[in-house]
């Protein structure tokens, strides 16, 4: 198992590097230039100096390795130093965002908490809704509950989040006026009232994501339960005289959870990238919003960095899913 993990890790790191190189080279071909938006009255020499100061004078590969060094070493240390107050931040240049001229790492530190809250809660609630629905649907296959559950999950799976989000805004903030339609990120939770406000404003984005995730996970859960319910060991458990509750919730559920857990792990990065849309609907200024804005104004260092983070997340969680599968299911042996 350990050697398998190490082998996977040995493949994962080059994968991330290749992806970052692809994105870097793609963005390098882009027509966008950080000096493009400056006033035309600036003389050419000064313009060239600005380009030099942003580190655009070197050849592509030199710039790539510089960026990689800053991304993997300088920025994490700066972020760590900012969080802990330790004096470990190295000297030297950092990745600068072209639109704000401030280090990318500092902007991301401000953006990540919102995304984590919205995406994390959305995923958590999605799982909490999906598991019981999947279990009951499979146990009572073809009952009205199963029919309704399958239909609703098909709808939740087919209706894109940008439409559910807009419909939620229409119903709950325009017609009923229960929740605000825009997310106020400057809001600080101090007392009970401000907490209620925070809960209200996070409710809709979380609900949109939870609905979408729940419909996907409940389909997996149902299929996985159905696979296991007809197995011999279930008949054995019943023949031993175990109660129906023990059979389903202990024997079948535990075995059915194996593929579902890996699906949940693989889904985490997709939820991050999918949340770009949800953040855009509710104007949450998270990571996805930062990416979209950076793309609008051709702020390539920012785009590069966020894409790299997403790539790391995907590779990491794929690795976790594979390893988890091996740990959870003793029948699986990676040689």
């Amino acid at each position: 198992m350990l050697s398998y993990t190490l082998r996977r890790l040995a493949f994962a790191i080059p994968t991330v590097l290749v992806i970052s190189l692809i994105v870097f080279l793609m963005l390098d071909m882009a027509p966008g230039d950080p000096t493009g938006s400056l006033p035309l009255t600036i003389p050419l020499e000064v313009r060239e100096q600005i380009r030099q100061s942003l580190g655009l004078g070197d050849p592509v590969m030199v710039r790539y390795f510089k960026w990689l060094y800053m991304m993997c070493f300088v920025e994490p240390l700066h972020i760590l130093a900012g969080l802990t107050g330790w004096d470990i931040a190295p000297e030297g240049p950092r990745i600068l965002s072209w639109q704000t001229r401030s280090p990318v790492g500092d902007i991301l530190v401000q953006r990540v908490p919102q995304t984590l809250w919205v995406v994390g809660l959305g995923y958590l609630f999605g799982i909490l809704i999906a598991l019981p629905i999947g279990v009951i649907s499979a146990y009572r296959q073809y009952s009205w509950f199963d029919q309704a559950g399958t239909f609703v999950s098909m709808i939740g799976f087919s209706v894109p989040t940008f439409f559910t989000g807009v419909v939620f805004i229409l119903i709950f903030s325009v017609w009923l006026g229960w929740f605000p339609s825009m997310y106020d990120t400057t809001h600080v939770v101090r007392d009970w009232n401000s907490f209620v406000f925070q809960a209200k404003q996070i409710a809709m984005p979380v609900a949109v994501l939870a609905l979408f995730n729940a419909s996907q996970i409940s389909r997996f859960m149902r299929a996985s339960m159905l696979d296991n319910l007809n197995q011999d060991y279930v008949r054995t458990a019943r023949a031993k005289g175990l109660g129906e509750k023990t059979v389903v919730l202990v024997h079948v559920l535990r075995n059915s959870m194996i593929p579902v857990v890996t699906v949940i792990a693989i889904g985490i990065p997709t939820v991050f990238t999918g949340a770009i849309i949800t953040e855009q609907i509710f104007r949450v200024n998270g990571l996805g919003d930062a990416l979209i804005r950076a793309i609008y104004v051709s702020d390539w260092p920012m785009v590069q960095t966020i894409t790299f983070i997403f790539a790391i997340l995907i590779v990491l969680f794929n690795l976790i899913a594979d390893v988890l599968y091996g740990i959870l299911d003793p029948r699986i042996r990676y040689d």
Binding site: T15, T273, V303, I306, A311, I314, N318
Partner: peptide, 8 residues
């Protein structure tokens, strides 16, 4: 499969 598809 490891590419972040929507950003890309």
């Amino acid at each position: 499969l490891a590419l972040p598809l929507l950003p890309l």
